[in-house]
């Protein structure tokens, strides 16, 4: 009686392997199309970012930050100084590649996450179904899904983007859902009372008022995308993560630290900018 009864064993292992193999064999073509499309976009963005002189990128980031900080000069100058640090580590190109992967992963994540969040806020059943799935996505060790992702998309940046998506989409979904449900129900009732359609209520009232929370979700997504950079480099993503990996593999502590600091800089810059926008939308939507 000390052994677990053999007849109770569930062959999940075999099922999963068969399923993945079936997907790869049957739908391999579809995955190939997705890969080449994404790769094309990625290459364009990468090429664009690396073709710009470094100072143009820094000025662009400075301008965006200036907007986000409510036109305050000092914090935007700080952001620009931080970006200079990356260049002085001689990691500029690697950082631009990481930035490109991160931007595309974020755009995809937000583009899918926000509509799913909206669905979740509007439909109890969708929420009930998605909640355990989101919990799983957030707690499952990322190495577990790195393997099938590589099987579907091959080694490289595209696989990294998908791994990042799985890891980073739950917060934006959750915060969109939360944001919409937190909108004052009296205000929603008021727009109903004036004969607004569900679509008019969504675009005219719920989304604008949920914006601070949605922006917090976008911020989280960006942070998590950056946290994925090193792990993604293990499946062949280039950029700063690769530098860290080199440092690890060759025992080159200094190189690892420089690349690590560059990731931190990118994270801080992106975080402050998105938080700035989040605060801007908050002052616009707070009620009395």
């Amino acid at each position: 009686m000390r052994e677990f009864p053999e007849s109770w064993q569930i062959p999940l292992k075999e099922w999963t392997n068969d399923f993945v193999e079936m997907l790869v064999v049957r739908y391999g073509d579809i995955f190939d199309v997705i890969v080449s499309a994404l790769l094309f976009i990625l290459v364009q963005v990468e090429r664009f970012l690396t073709s710009l002189p470094w100072w143009v990128v820094i000025i662009l980031i400075g301008v965006v930050a200036w907007q986000a900080f409510g036109r305050r000069l000092v914090p935007s100058l700080m952001v620009m100084l931080l970006m200079l640090l990356i260049g002085s580590f001689d990691l500029w190109d690697a950082a631009m590649i990481t930035l490109a992967i991160m931007l595309i992963a974020t755009v995809i994540t937000v583009a899918i996450g926000i509509p799913v969040g909206i669905l979740m806020a509007r439909n109890k059943n969708v929420r009930a179904a998605l909640k355990p799935l989101l919990d799983t996505m957030q707690t499952m060790p990322s190495f577990v899904y790195l393997i099938p992702v590589v099987m579907f998309f091959g080694l490289g940046n595209v696989a990294a983007i998908f791994a990042t998506f799985v890891y980073a989409v739950p917060p934006v979904i959750r915060l969109t859902d939360l944001g919409i449900r937190l909108v004052d129900h009296q205000v929603v009732e008021a727009s109903e009372a004036f004969g607004a359609t569900p679509r008019q209520i969504l675009w005219g009232v719920q989304l604008p008022l949920a914006m601070p929370n949605i922006m917090a979700g976008v911020n989280q997504t960006i942070m998590m995308a950056l946290a994925m950079v090193v792990i993604a480099s293990m499946i062949g993503a280039r950029g700063l993560g690769q530098e860290v990996l080199y440092g690890l593999q060759r025992g080159d502590v200094g190189r690892g630290l420089e690349a690590g600091l560059a990731i931190v800089v990118l994270a801080i810059v992106m975080d402050r900018i998105t938080q700035g926008y989040s605060k801007l939308s908050e002052t616009n939507t707070k009620s009395a």
Binding site: D184, Q186, V187, S191, A193, K286, S287
Partner: peptide
């Protein structure tokens, strides 16, 4: 119909 609410329910944005 027009409706007026107890807590005003104006659109803050």
């Amino acid at each position: 119909m027009g409706m007026v609410f107890q807590r005003f329910a104006l659109f803050p944005h």
